[in-house]
Design a protein around this nucleic acid. Structure first.
Lengths: 180, 180
DNA sequence: TATGACATGTAACTAGTTACATGATTCA
DNA sequence: TGAATCATGTAACTAGTTACATGTCATA
């Protein structure tokens, strides 16, 4: 039974870090801020996890210390091996289906509470989505989009978020009417 | 600074198990099959994790062994404490925003590969979504929906899945045109 | 009597979170 | 000189996955 070893995805923080360093070198501290700014809604990461991952990536030869600064600052850059791994992951690894959704999990079990409360919960999901929709639309206006890669792909992600939020809002509006 | 302790969400498998047992008592083996059938796309769980969680829930007094059967079978039922916890989680705990998405994470970094490959990746996302959309539509036809709670809320979840898949397919169609 | 379904568990691991701990530099 | 920011790290924990391990019962 010969079979190509093409195993799992997983360990995506690793690839998020590689992706950011491929774009531009930086320290753990820099990356932390970039994560907060750009990826809080797609792939949140904590400070602990970031520094741990940087250590592992350096040990694996996928990044290297490129410059040192004050206060022990270590600025990392991606290596050829790291870039190869990033590209492999981007193109060849199966991204898998939709992820776990705690919000949706609850919907399954709303039969355990009164219909009024169930309707309230679904309505709250809709409101949360509506707020996010509005926030993303505002965010879109404040960014000055160029035609560089970051702008192009950043815009795709933002658009996905807007469509997702709109979908959820519309679904919630429909769903409250289905309950009772 | 007085503050009500209303901490995190997290540990949702616990609540998934409570929800299933609230609906109908069953053994770990039963729940495993129910997870595979009904929740594979919303909250997948492994056999190990299920048995572990059943042990913890029993220790916490949220479920109890209701009947024993052949082969060491232990049939659990939910207790009043468990039902209270489930309802608390359903109604009062903040579900949080959209979860991590490895697929979307990749989109951020598509600038690291050639435009042609990026387009290929986004197109594949669209095809995956289209297949899921079709599969869910077929699934909807095979189920005979009543007007019991399970049917009502199960239908809401299924509809969410259909809308999500359609959104992703449409986004991907739009996105491939944005690349170059 | 052997296969497949039923049934439960443990061990070792990866991923991720929260809290703690430390210290250097800048600048008002 | 004191506060904010810069900067890195560790410890202890929860959640989740994969692989292993064991044994029972029905039935063809």
């Amino acid at each position: 039974m010969s079979r190509v070893e093409c195993h799992d995805d997983g360990m995506s923080l690793r690839h998020a870090v590689l992706g950011m360093l491929a774009d531009e070198p930086g320290s753990g501290y820099d990356l932390l801020k970039r994560f907060e700014r750009a990826m809080a809604n797609v792939w949140p990461a904590t400070q602990s996890q970031l520094y741990g991952e940087l250590g592992k990536l350096e040990a694996a030869g996928m990044i290297r210390v490129h410059a040192e600064g004050p206060r022990g600052r270590k600025e990392y850059e991606i290596t050829d091996a790291g870039l190869a791994e990033l590209r492999h992951w981007l193109v060849e690894v199966d991204p898998g289906g939709p992820p776990r959704s705690a919000g949706l999990l609850r919907v399954y079990f709303l039969g355990s509470v009164a219909a009024e409360q169930a309707r309230g919960y679904v309505a709250a999901m809709g409101e949360t989505a509506a707020e996010r929709e509005k926030r993303l639309a505002e965010l879109e206006g404040t960014i000055d989009w160029g035609d560089d890669n970051q702008s192009v792909y950043g815009r795709l992600v933002l658009e996905w978020g807007k469509r997702f939020s709109a979908m959820q809002r519309e679904w919630a509006e429909w769903a409250v009417e289905q309950i009772e």
